[in-house]
Design a protein around this nucleic acid. Sequence first.
DNA 1: CTATCGCATCTTGTAGACAAAATGCAAGAG
DNA 2: CTCTTGCATTTTGTCTACAAGATGCGATAG
Lengths: 241, 241
Amino acid sequence: MASPTGARGNGRSSASRLTSLVHPPSLVTLAADAIRKKILAGEYGPGERLLEERLTEELAISRPPLREALRTLENEGLIETRQRRGSFVSTLTDKDVYEILTLRSTLERMAFELGIPVKDPALLGPARAALLDMEQSAREEDRGALVQAGYAFHYALVGIADHQRLNQTYASVQRQLLLCMARNLIAREMYYEDLENHVARHRYLLELVESGDREAALAELAVHGERSFEKAAPPASEETG
Amino acid sequence: MASPTGARGNGRSSASRLTSLVHPPSLVTLAADAIRKKILAGEYGPGERLLEERLTEELAISRPPLREALRTLENEGLIETRQRRGSFVSTLTDKDVYEILTLRSTLERMAFELGIPVKDPALLGPARAALLDMEQSAREEDRGALVQAGYAFHYALVGIADHQRLNQTYASVQRQLLLCMARNLIAREMYYEDLENHVARHRYLLELVESGDREAALAELAVHGERSFEKAAPPASEETG
DNA sequence: CTATCGCATCTTGTAGACAAAATGCAAGAG
DNA sequence: CTCTTGCATTTTGTCTACAAGATGCGATAG
């Protein structure tokens, strides 16, 4: 710490969006990003206990910033913290998956209802960029990258509403959806679908959005997410832990 | 601080919902509740800087739990934290109000779409109880209590969907709406509306929900919240800070 | 008189240490 | 042999202290 070599600033690799343009990201942000990544990568299994001491030595930070990071992840729904018991990676039940999928669908519809017709053409930029990523991933037959680009595409689509809280809520839901996928809790038929067809559906959706036909876009969105839904268990009034 | 007079266990007065049945609430929870209450009560004004040291002496706790509480409030949208600058009470722009109201509307519609017809009659209990509270408040002409009961009623209505994430998100939005009200950012005509009429509208809405007629309930919900909306500025593509 | 630079103060970010509570195991009684 | 009870260990909750960065004021030069 005494060395002025800036050992603090090691983690400028995947720093958060805009925070790090001038500021070195705080250890809290760094820790939250790192733990979130590990959870979504499946490195920490469902229900696994997250020992603070272990995490501190893994991340080479001390407990206060770690605890703040855990508090953030708790609010994101990725971990659950029980009094005097510690933090655990969230275990998702069928009902949780149902909740995540229904909430996602509602938020996407909301974005379309508020954002179509698109007021500022610049709002479409991210979606177009994400679609390009999808097309390239499809050409390279990189299914992992395709899935990732698909998520970015959906997030960008929600962005057309120019609605910060919607964006934030949607991002949170999407993270939990990634948690589902890490657990193989969702039928990932997209993985085995024809890649070109997959991209084509997204391209068509974007074209409808661009056309300004709100109802048509909403209709396509409904069938767009349908396959994910039919695999998800309906409420069933049970909480299969 | 050196005095062992048990200054630790003072705040067992208004502990959180279920946490405190056996567990003494953590200082983090206590601090978050206390600060949230003060913010919503208007004690801390918009944009006001929240000095950690000052808060620690006000709440008689030390900085680590306070910082965790602030992190929670940040995720709730009640405060904003800037790197190395500290925490500030959120300043709501017209666009923020628009976002809060539209999101609230969407979430309520979602609750109706998923929750009507009501599957388990017990889910209606809280709404009925809240309506009774509203009726009593109206009889006593206690407008403050009526408003509060109205919020509880809406929250209970959302509860019919039996959707944890929806409940949680809605609660967060509702808190921000309370922040709007504390700032007089929303036309509170409900305050000056005929009390009986106000309660009657809510009673009618609940009756429609109970009847199982989803479309009718949704239609009534649309006009129910309409008055709040017409006062809220449309996006206007400006961010009046 | 005004603008700019430098310093002092304040505030946040982080670290390490102590106390309290929960868990698991072991020992003893039934 | 099984259940209960007590203790030791582990882990969380909290506190105090130190370091780094930001803000505001004052002094100085133009």
